[in-house]
Computed example of a mutant assay.
Amino acid sequence: MRDDGLDRAIDAAGGVAQLARKIGISQPSVSNWAKVPAQRVIAVEAATGIPRTELRPDLFGGRGLSEGTVEPVDAARAQEYALLATLLSAPPSRKLLDQLATLTGDATPVGSAHAVLAEAASAAVPAQIEREYFDLFVGLGRGELLPYASYYLTGFLNERPLSRLRADLSASGIERVANNFEPEDHASILCEIMAGFAEGRFEASSDKQRAFFEKHVSSWMGRLFADLESAENARFYRAVGALGRLFIGIETEAFTFAN
């Protein structure tokens, strides 16, 4: 029996087959779900616009930001990381694009990037963004970009950066979810982990966050976002690249100052 969150996601996607297609897995896999698997929550959120707190309230409800115990700066950091994780994990749904179109900017660099992203979202066509996402990150054989730490740091996939990351995640008690076939050094997963640190979903001192960021994120992710800004197939995602590059730069400066 499906839970309410999964039923809402299927309805929003237009059926089981459409949901499976949007997140890039087989229809029988989705048909066998009783609830959205933890490793698929971000992709389903991006594809349907149903927030993770409704897809899996047992994982994301009543914790972190909702408790009001997180500092405002960390809450904002968590939201920025979560946004980047969502947009890197799957093409955004019409509902999510409508939400992004309401973003308001300010005079700061990130505020200006939000305004550009809102403008791009307001003009976007979901079917075109699905194709853009495919060309950028999936492709026939491979996409234009490979958003993995191992590739950016060594030129190859599944290399030592991934094994070092897995060791650090294990030491932090963050376990790989069964049937998640995406390597943990994918940019969306790393952004999700940083969001979890910032909002208190994963326990980590400021020093531990800084060490993780410097070892697994800042060493390469800024280059990924810069490449995304100039990618041949990027249109909507050019604005995502600009936001990501600016935000990672701010995080780098903040952790350096704190250190």
Rank of each mutant, 00 (worst) to 15 (best):
Glu119Thr: 03
Ala123Tyr: 08
Gly68Thr: 04
Val217Pro: 10
Gly105Tyr: 05
Phe257His: 06
Ala78Thr: 11
Arg142Asn: 03
Phe247Thr: 13
Thr104Ile: 11
Met194Thr: 08
Thr252Val: 05
Ser230Gly: 11
Ala47Phe: 09
Ala101Tyr: 08
Asp11Glu: 03
Leu162Gly: 11
Glu159Pro: 07
Val70Pro: 02
Leu140Asn: 03
Glu184Met: 15
Ser26Val: 12
Cys191Asp: 07
Gly68Phe: 09
Pro161Gln: 06
Leu243Ala: 01
Pro109Val: 05
Leu246Pro: 07
Glu119Trp: 04
Thr69Ser: 03
Pro147Trp: 15
Glu130Lys: 14
Lys22Met: 03
Met221Pro: 10
Thr108Phe: 14
Ala17Trp: 07
Gly139Asp: 10
Gly155Pro: 05
Glu182Ile: 13
Pro183Glu: 10
Ile193Gln: 03
Gly105His: 13
Pro57Val: 00
Ala234Asn: 06
Gly155Asp: 04
Gly62Ile: 06
Gly111Phe: 10
Phe137Ala: 13
Ala101Asn: 09
Gly61Lys: 00
Asn180Gly: 08
Tyr152Pro: 09
Ala167Pro: 01
Ala167Arg: 15
Ser66Gln: 15
Leu103Ala: 08
Glu144Asn: 15
Arg77Trp: 08
Ala258His: 06
Tyr151Leu: 06
Arg201Leu: 14
Ser112Asp: 10
Glu253Tyr: 12
Gln209Phe: 09
Ala76Pro: 05
Gly155Arg: 07
Phe60Gln: 00
Asp3Ser: 14
Tyr148Ala: 06
Ala38Gln: 04
Ala82Glu: 09
Val16Trp: 04
Val36Phe: 02
Glu132Arg: 14
Tyr148Glu: 04
Ala113Leu: 06
Ala115Asp: 11
Lys95Ala: 13
Ala12Asn: 00
Glu132Phe: 13
Arg201Val: 07
Arg21Gly: 04
Ala254Met: 13
Gly241Lys: 14
Ile248Met: 14
Glu203Val: 12
Ser172Asp: 02
Gly141Thr: 12
Ala254Phe: 11
Pro72Tyr: 08
Arg63Cys: 10
Arg238Gln: 07
Ala178Pro: 06
Thr154Phe: 07
Val36Asp: 01
Ile248Ala: 10
Gly14Gln: 02
Arg223Leu: 07
Gln99Asn: 05
Ala198Val: 06
Arg223Asn: 14
Ala107Trp: 12
Glu175Ser: 11
Ile189Met: 05
Val177Cys: 03
Tyr152Ile: 11
Gly62Tyr: 03
Glu130Phe: 01
Asn158Arg: 15
Val70Trp: 01
Ser218Phe: 15
Phe181Asp: 10
Glu214Phe: 11
Glu67Cys: 02
Arg223Gln: 14
Leu136Trp: 10
Ser230Met: 09
Ala211Met: 00
Arg63Asn: 02
Pro72Glu: 00
Arg166Lys: 15
Val125Asn: 11
Asp185Lys: 07
Gly49Phe: 03
Phe137Arg: 11
Glu54Lys: 00
Lys208Asp: 09
Ala127Leu: 08
Glu159Gly: 13
Glu229Lys: 11
Ile129Trp: 15
Arg21Glu: 14
Phe212Asn: 00
Ala113Cys: 13
Leu83His: 03
Ser29Lys: 13
Val240Gln: 12
Ala204Cys: 02
Ile42Thr: 15
Pro51Lys: 02
Lys22Ile: 02
Tyr151Glu: 01
Arg238Ser: 05
Glu232Ile: 00
Ser206Met: 09
Glu199Asp: 15
Thr53Asn: 04
Thr154Pro: 00
Ser26Ile: 05
Leu162Phe: 14
Asp207Cys: 09
Ala34Asn: 02
Gly200Ala: 02
Val73Ser: 13
Val36Tyr: 13
Arg176Asn: 05
Leu65Asp: 04
Ala46Pro: 01
Ala231Leu: 05
Gly200Met: 12
